[in-house]
Design a protein around this nucleic acid. Structure first.
Lengths: 257, 257
DNA sequence: CGTGCCAGGTGCCAT
DNA sequence: ATGGCACTTGGCACG
């Protein structure tokens, strides 16, 4: 499972190690030690000499971590080429990609450890509580939004974007539903209003189009703007324990009952 | 620099190792091997048994990586508690936080390697080309947006959000400028329109308020909506090579000349 | 704290 | 490739 490990490798050994294991594309490679990092692309950055952890995964993705924080200090989601070479008696790692043209360069001043790991066995991964799941549940049970609602489309594309749920209510009025898995903000209200306008533009002039924002909660400014625009809010939770955690008796049926 | 390393540790040894080194808060801890991972919080997930790399940084942040991709499979940006314990002859890692209430649980079925690294030396980090930098440059050189422009405020807060640059033009008209460091989208147009409306609402009824979207480029739909709404686009680049890379002679002075 | 918004956002999926 | 958008977004700044 440990393919290879080097302690305090020489620049040449490290470059060999990196080139060999990143090219084989079958193991996760990391180097820890004193280094300098520069990046140039959509933005540009420089990291002074410090101790960092460089990780290159099988797919060529690169991340460079400093001691704290969830996000890497520098990274490269996809690389067109990863190359190590020795220059002026230090090992350098160059990770580049086109489109956008970006380059991350690591200068290993004092590499302490290099490690190649096989992470061979892949396991299935399932995420629940996404907006996609919410959408599916509500498409199958539109009564959770409102009695008598009939869903006509999911992800209906209009000029201004995609409408999560397009429906008609018990009175035959068209309804645009915008879903949010988390607290709805002004951004969601903007989206909903845009979609309602788009739909109104496509229907006969007098047609009434309702807009419903369906989310577990909504920010106060969003609620105000929503009401100003004559749009509606409907509370729906993305996960079962979300309502349970709220403490009180569930005010409405959970999507997961 | 390698504080400690274990190969194929027993559940007890691994639990000790994790508890000791995560509590000391002075090194980066990782475990690689066969494991199962579950997460419950804002959403919920399960990862079947597979080979993963678990990383706990000094600040208690947790990330669990699968063999590919820049993003961790599971993570926890901040943890209120990280604890390892042996249960039914396997080592389990529990990382929890409140607000939001979230729990990541790792069951180490076959830990292959555990490693504690000191990343002691911190180096300075500088990022260039951010929107904040753009804003500063344009506030100091508003003529890059338009001759005769005078900036009144930066980050002026109005009801609907913060206006990047608030200015008056050569004719004395008020100007709302929205900046984007990358290609501007419909979202940016919505923002700009909201801010212009807010400003119009605060000024005497007949006051003309211009809205300018300043960005290196703009999507076609955004451009259409911008023009529909009577707003304007101004090309500005966030980085010097952005215009240079564009190839032709620079159509306007770079922010970095 | 909530609210808003940038980010080298990344990733997914549509045309 | 362009475009729109969700994301356990994360992160910061500000009322």
């Amino acid at each position: 499972m440990i393919r290879q490990q080097l302690l305090m490798p020489s620049p040449e050994d490290l470059a060999d190690f990196l080139n060999r294991h990143t090219r084989s594309r079958d193991c996760l490679v990391q180097v820890a030690g004193l280094a300098e990092v520069t990046y140039q692309g959509r933005a540009a950055s420089t990291a002074d000499v410090g101790t960092y952890l460089v990780v290159v995964k099988q797919d060529g993705s690169l991340q460079i971590h400093h001691p704290t924080g969830i996000k890497p200090m520098n990274w490269q989601p996809k690389t067109d080429s990863i190359t190590a070479r020795v220059d002026e008696d230090v090992c350098m790692l160059l990770a580049s990609r086109r489109s956008p043209e970006e380059l991350v360069q690591v200068v290993f001043l004092e590499p302490q450890m290099a490690l190649a790991l096989e992470l061979a066995q892949a396991g299935g991964f399932v995420l629940r509580g996404s907006e996609a799941e919410m959408q599916q549940t509500l498409a199958e049970h539109p009564e959770l939004i409102e009695p008598g609602l009939r869903v006509l489309n999911r992800e209906l594309m209009v000029e201004s974007g995609g409408i999560d749920l397009y429906a008609r209510d018990a009175q035959g009025r068209y309804v645009v539903v915008e879903l949010k898995r988390g607290r709805a903000t002004q951004h969601a209200v903007s989206q909903l209003a845009r979609y309602v306008r788009s739909v109104e533009g496509k229907l006969p002039a007098k047609a009434v189009v309702r807009g419903i924002l369906a989310a577990p909660s909504i920010t106060t400014p969003a609620r105000l703007e929503l009401e100003n625009r004559g749009l509606e809010f409907r509370e729906v939770s993305a996960l079962p324990q979300a309502t349970a955690a709220a403490g009180g008796p569930v005010a409405q049926p959970s999507l997961f009952d």
